[in-house]
């Protein structure tokens, strides 16, 4: 790694840290700007009770002081404060229990999407303009255009309610199958198309022709020469794929009643549970930013041909 690459990585890390800080700041001030306190939806409170609650949660202090305390708590102890609606639970508690489910869901979906996408893409590229290529391209185009909530609800309808192959509830045995499929379909389709086009690109290169000319077998060309280079664009997609899976999990967990962080986020918004809104936004956003950072850096490190700005 030369000093230029190192400098680039440093710059990207700085941008990522800045982004996370901006997310925290925006989240904090935006939620504080909402008229009506966090206790608005509840039974009418007496003035004293409201003051006591405000004092308990530190809402009576100046906003800027609250902000500094909040920032300090996050950085030093990963502490997002107590949840307002789920009495007795901290935000971090809810997030970490939700994460256990969501991470499992997301990782399985990401893994399936990557493996199946690369295989299908390679097959489509090798059988270019044959029937199988056309079938793959038509199906992936359809999947890319279908919003995840549509896909999820239709799958739920077909496989859980009509055919009754799998349970409709995500918490039940085998209930994660449909959420995983729903989450994985779009990235699979995308990776298939990406692999196909970059594989076609690579197969047209001179070094592949050279390998063919010296008599290397077809399979060896694909796996020894072409695949590695055609996977480079796929690496850049890993970051956006995670972002898609995180946002997709918001609706997917809602549809299939999976108790993950996405569901916690959505219900925190309807509950106006501000600490939980802020906590989940910050955790999910940081996750996306970090994953984008990693895939960017990997991209530059893996392919030395790419010039750095």
């Amino acid at each position: 790694m030369n000093s230029k690459t190192f400098l680039y990585i440093l710059k990207r890390i700085a941008l990522a840290v800045l982004t996370v800080w901006i997310v925290i700041t925006v989240t904090f001030f935006v939620t504080r700007a909402v008229p009506g306190g966090p206790f608005l939806g509840e039974k009418a409170l007496s003035a004293e009770a409201e003051a006591a609650l405000n004092a308990k949660y530190g809402l009576d202090k100046p906003v800027f002081e609250q902000y500094i305390t909040y920032l300090k708590d996050i950085v030093t102890r990963m502490d997002f404060g107590p949840s307002l609606k789920n009495r007795g639970r901290t935000v971090m508690d809810i997030i970490s229990s939700g994460m256990q489910v969501s991470v499992k869901l997301g990782l399985i979906a990401a893994g399936c999407a990557t493996v199946i996408g690369i295989v299908l893409g390679a097959v489509a590229a090798l059988r270019r303009n044959k029937i199988i290529d056309k079938v793959i391209m038509v199906i992936t185009t359809a999947f890319v255009s279908m919003p995840s909530f549509i896909m999820g609800t239709l799958l739920l309808l077909l496989f859980a309610l009509v055919l009754k192959w799998v349970p409709a509830n995500g918490a039940m045995e085998g209930g994660l199958i449909l959420p995983v499929i729903t989450l994985a379909l779009y990235p699979t389709a995308y990776i298939t198309r990406l692999t196909r086009s970059s594989m076609l690109d690579v197969l047209g290169q001179d070094y592949i022709r050279t390998a063919r000319a010296k008599g290397v077998s077809g399979v060896k060309i694909i796996f020894g020469h072409a695949l590695k280079n055609s996977l480079i664009p796929v690496i850049t997609y890993l970051g956006p794929m995670l972002a898609y899976i995180v946002t997709g999990s918001l609706v997917v967990e809602q549809i299939f009643a999976v108790n993950g962080i996405g569901r916690a986020f959505v219900s925190s918004i309807t509950d106006r549970d501000y600490p939980l809104i802020m906590g989940t936004t910050i955790v999910l956003a940081s996750l996306i930013v970090i994953m984008n950072l990693v895939s960017d850096i990997m991209y530059k490190v893996v392919d030395p041909r790419i010039t750095l700005e």
Binding site: T19, V23, V26, T31, T247, F265, I277, A285
Partner: peptide
């Protein structure tokens, strides 16, 4: 532009849509 670009857009959209609803009403 770089900074806005690196913000996770959907999360920010949800947050802003959820919060602005209340702020805009008045």
């Amino acid at each position: 532009v770089d900074i806005i670009y690196s913000l996770p857009d959907t999360l920010m959209v949800i947050l802003l849509a959820a919060v602005m609803k209340n702020a805009l009403e008045d």
